[in-house]
Structure formats: structure tokens, C-alpha cells
């Protein structure tokens, strides 16, 4: 499958990763990674541990600066765009290790996601009249009606996040990402560490989110069952390189992928070589 030209019309592509390379000191985390995410799809990035998946996410978020290559979001190059600005453009994400703010309630954590789209300034905030009050109340109503109800977390809205069990924290993080008015929702291991039932719940939420919010989803995930069930497109990374991409069914039988997952990375590369040529 590798090398099969995935030709998409430019306006169908919401995110283009173009030849991105990233290195930490001498260690190469990503090497010439290229792929596209089609608007409205669920795209999964898979690969063994240390393949560079989270590094890729961090590069797209703007947290790492690639050594070469570029990320294009909705036809606009993101080079030189700071992470907060990318968030405002509609790049929302969750984190592998759950980055909720421990000192805030669930509600405040979710509200925080809207930050980049609000206009309340310092002076408005100090007096809490006019714009500040209106904006906060509108946000509260929207979060309650569209996000909290949807994700079924009414009962914990006022709880401090530190007291929540793991599965719920993941859901709160998703809620916060939804509050960011996402156009591309990046989920970093949304079901890691969950049991079967929780995983199925989360998969359902992801599919519903895609329908209801009309967003594109890019996720990193280890749970093959879930990836194969819900994704439209799969990108396989190994040692920082794309070794295969395509539909779930195609990727599953790709010899390079099979080899990578058996742990023989070199073998995988050798196998994929002739096909790529």
C-alpha cells in the first residue's frame, strides 16, 4: 500500500503534513513525514511505542518546531504560527497524559477551552459587567447544553478534576477540546488504559462528535480494535517514518506494518522498500 498516491483535491484536505522532520539533539524523532487528513474523516496514526506519534502531534500543535517541512491547515501554512494562534484557528487536542488543570473544577476546565475565542479583556474582567458577564453566561449555557449534556458529565460539573477517575478525566478533556470550537480535533490516545466498556463508550462519543460537531478527527491510538472499527484512514509510523497508509483493512495486511508490530523494524523497512520504489 505504501506509496500509493492518495490524491485528494486541495479543498478536501484539512490538514497537510509535508515532509516534516524533527530531531532532539542527534536523535531523529520524525523523518520526512508526509500525509494528508481529509475533511470530515477520522484519521488514525498508529505505530509501536517510540514511533514518534506524540512528537508528530506536538509538531502539529506548534509545540515543537520541525527541523524541516511544513504543516498546512486548511490551505494555510502554519510555519511561524504560535501554538495559541493555532488553537484559535481550530486545532484542538487532548493529551496522552491528560493535561487537565488540577486547581479548577470540571466546568472551569471546559470553559478554559474557549479562551482563544473570547474577547473579555482585563478591565472587563475586573468589573464583570457588560461583555465579560455576557460572554461568560453565553459560554456557560452553551457548554451546559451542547457539551456537558452530550458527554453525560452533568453529575461532576462542579467537582475538582483531581478527584475524578481516569475514564471521566479523559471525557472531561474531550469536553474541553470541544469547547475549543475545533475544526480538527486531535486525540492523543483517547482510550489508553480503559477497559472494554469504557473504550466502547469513548468510540461512540468520537463518532457522535464527528457527526454532531462536523469536525475532522485525527487520533493517535494503540487499541487496534478501535482504530480498525472507526477510522476511515490509517497512517502507520515506525522509527519516525511513515511506513504505510491507507484504509484500515489494507494497512492491517501490509507486510511492513506486520513486521513493525512484530518488532523487527529493519525487516519492516526492507520489506517495504521494493514496493515503495
Amino acid at each position: 500500500m505504501r506509496g500509493l498516491p492518495v490524491t485528494l483535491a486541495a479543498r478536501d484536505v484539512i490538514l497537510g503534513v509535508e515532509g516534516v522532520s524533527l530531531a532532539f539533539g542527534g536523535v531523529r524523532a520524525l523523518t520526512d513525514v508526509s500525509f494528508s487528513v481529509r475533511r470530515g474523516s477520522i484519521t488514525a496514526v498508529i505505530g509501536p511505542n517510540g514511533a514518534g506519534k506524540t512528537s508528530l502531534f506536538n509538531t502539529i500543535s506548534g509545540f515543537y518546531r520541525p527541523r524541516s517541512g511544513n504543516v498546512v491547515f486548511d490551505g494555510r501554512s502554519l510555519a511561524g504560527t504560535a501554538p495559541p494562534e493555532r488553537a484559535r484557528l481550530g486545532l484542538a487536542r487532548t493529551f496522552q497524559n491528560i493535561a487537565l488543570f488540577r486547581g479548577m473544577t470540571v466546568l472551569d476546565n471546559i470553559k478554559l477551552g474557549r479562551h482563544a475565542h473570547m474577547r473579555t479583556g482585563l478591565l472587563d474582567a475586573l468589573v464583570y459587567r457588560g461583555r465579560a458577564r455576557r460572554e461568560e453566561l453565553e459560554l456557560r449555557a452553551e457548554i451546559e447544553e451542547r457539551i456537558i449534556d452530550f458527554l453525560e458529565i452533568q453529575h461532576i460539573r462542579n467537582a475538582p478534576v483531581a478527584t475524578l477517575p481516569y475514564g471521566l478525566r479523559k471525557r472531561v478533556e474531550l469536553a474541553r477540546a470541544l469547547a475549543m470550537r475545533p475544526r480538527l480535533l486531535m486525540l492523543d490516545e483517547p482510550v489508553a488504559g480503559m477497559n472494554r466498556e469504557e473504550t466502547e463508550d469513548m468510540a461512540r462519543f468520537i463518532l457522535d462528535v464527528k457527526e454532531e460537531w462536523d469536525v475532522t478527527i485525527l487520533m493517535v491510538e494503540h487499541d487496534m480494535g478501535m482504530v480498525m472499527d472507526i477510522s476511515d484512514h490509517v497512517v502507520v509510523l515506525n522509527f519516525g517514518q511513515v511506513i504505510a497508509e491507507g484504509s484500515p483493512a489494507a494497512v492491517q495486511v501490509d507486510p511492513a506494518v506486520v513486521a513493525a508490530y512484530l518488532g523487527a523494524g529493519d525487516l519492516g523497512r526492507r520489506l517495504s522498500g521494493p514496493e515503495a520504489a
Partner: peptide, 10 residues
């Protein structure tokens, strides 16, 4: 008031 708004949350 500050901590009822986006500024305080930030």
C-alpha cells in the same frame, strides 16, 4: 471577578 472570567482561568 477576575477569576470568574477567561483571564483568571488563564
Amino acid at each position: 471577578n477576575l477569576f470568574r472570567t477567561r483571564v483568571g482561568r488563564a
